[in-house]
Design a protein around this nucleic acid. Structure first.
Lengths: 117, 117
DNA sequence: CGTAAATTTCGGGTATTGCCGAATTATGGA
DNA sequence: TCCATAATTCGGCAATACCCGAAATTTACG
């Protein structure tokens, strides 16, 4: 991942409301959530939400598809993984002090998945 | 790590110039870099740099100490690790699709460190 | 002391962001 | 067709971010 898209993605996540939206989308999984449902869950106005969903989409962190009258948003797992890889490889360039301890976090994630499935 | 400091850190990194500064600091290691040296390396004006260094410091991503007439800035490895852990655990809450593939990135970082040492 | 060097702080002007109310578009159903 | 629903787009306003030149602060050194 290059610098500019990484900065765009970081900027998209550097907002409390959008971070909450992204969190909801990740929890919802590939099935995603309708915009209206996100508005209901978060309590934000539909137009504000629409703007923030668009920012996440432009940053590549969310995808959208129409389903009847609703538009379903889903987290873009690949993009988020790319962003994390960018940050980690960027950080690890000089030292492993940051990334090496994250091995435990990664392994915990895998365990969580194994338990869930 | 809680949401607010995470958003602050993300916001600090969501800026091309500050991301470049942080990258330089990480590469420089615990020894850090003098503000003037960063200014020379990046070509930004000293006052603009000072402002961005302050933003990184407030976000907890950089530390500073005086050394003679210079002020040495260094990357705050712990804070960056906390931020990455926050993002990964936040992402992994529902699925390992994002974090599990990062195991390879982590292992590559460790190898790099082993080679370097 | 007095001066130079390193960095920060101050003040501004411009650009961007964020939020809201209102209007608009798009879809599904009676 | 007509209406209700879902979501977006538009216009404006307040707040914030960014960058710069100039001045101030802090430290080192003769």
């Amino acid at each position: 991942m290059e610098t500019i898209p990484a900065v765009t993605a970081l900027s998209a996540l550097a907002h409390e409301g959008r971070l909450e939206i992204f969190r909801l989308l990740v929890k919802a999984g590939p099935a995603g959530l309708a915009a209206g449902e996100i508005a209901r869950l978060t309590g934000v106005l539909p137009n504000t939400l629409s703007s923030n969903l668009n920012i996440l989409s432009v940053a590549g962190l969310a995808t959208s598809r129409r389903h009847g009258r609703s538009i379903i948003y889903a987290a873009a797992y690949d993009r988020m993984r790319e962003l994390l890889a960018f940050l980690m490889e960027d950080c690890c360039a000089g030292s492993a002090a940051i990334c090496a301890p994250l091995a435990e976090v990664v392994s915990r994630c895998r365990v969580a998945e194994a338990v869930a499935s």
